[in-house]
Nucleic acid binder design. Structure first.
Lengths: 155, 155
DNA sequence: AATTGTTATGTTATCACATAACATAACAAA
DNA sequence: TTTGTTATGTTATGTGATAACATAACAATT
């Protein structure tokens, strides 16, 4: 994807976020929007303190709680995801519909892809049902090499 | 499970660990064994510093690296698992054969169960294959309420 | 038994991630 | 304009993990 296209996607993602929040009657304040923008611009997993460093260039008074509060809001609204195995955060590709999170994390290029496999979802659900476990959240994170990196350097 | 039975299982788990390590030509040193014993005794997710506190009663000089080194070894040998969504560690039920980790974590009683669903495994594998992703590790962690807790208090 | 390479442990300091607690400010509804 | 609520500012600290370097234990030789 060309930089210009990516820029465009980011702008678009922010517009979608604006609309979603407006529709839900919640406030995407400037700080929250800035944090989301940072995550959208990179679209790589970023640690809270990485975000903080970038945020400081726009908001020098920013401190850890500033970032964590924004992240808390964005997570609640499904606009970003948390990657448990990296202690990191990434913006959501399509926040307009909720989905169980399934992530493929490339250890070479750092790209994070959302798998969204309905069949994985269904299979896991039925396994949970079979043993009487009432799930309220699930984490699926696979680390490895993405197709592009494998093709670039098949080793 | 009665305490006596649990005790027995713990002793058994340690013996199995001894044998596995001997067979592999690696050393289950006293420190490593003590950490494993602590995890087996509880068989709940425990943080590294929880383990450290208990370890100190036997080994007062223990410090964070003491625990983390033991955990590193035990993880390598498949004797314990790390729960990414809790930053915690738990002893493995059957270390004798390797398996992709799939955990059910009860938020009420804290029990951790290994799901080991072959169908989930297969479904995920084929989804990964379909998009050309070469996995080298995977995390599946489901948080919710176990059957026992649901039956005890259906709310 | 002495040498030597390797693996394990001891020790200090510090990094990285996250939140508690309390004060102030902005907002929105009456 | 008051009042309740939500958001932000600020300080400090809690929690999880590792870097870096020194020493000790072990195991395989000669």
């Amino acid at each position: 994807m060309k930089p210009s296209t990516c820029q465009k996607n980011c702008q678009n993602a922010l517009r979608v976020a604006d609309q979603l929040c407006q529709g839900r009657g919640v406030r995407l304040t400037p700080q929250r929007r800035q944090v989301l923008e940072i995550l959208c611009d990179h679209h790589k997993p970023m640690g809270a303190y990485d975000i903080l460093d970038l945020l400081k260039s726009e908001l020098p008074a920013a401190k850890p709680p500033t970032v964590y509060r924004a992240l808390e809001f964005l997570l609640e609204q499904g606009l970003v995801h948390r990657l448990e195995s990296l202690n990191a955060y990434v913006s959501c590709i399509h926040p307009e519909h909720p989905h169980a999170s399934q992530f493929l994390i490339c250890r070479d290029c750092g790209e994070v892809r959302e798998l969204e496999s309905r069949s994985v979802d269904r299979t896991l659900d039925s396994a949970l049902k079979a043993c009487g476990f009432a799930a309220d959240s699930q984490v699926i994170e696979v680390t490895g090499r993405c197709l592009r990196c494998t093709e670039r350097d098949p080793s």
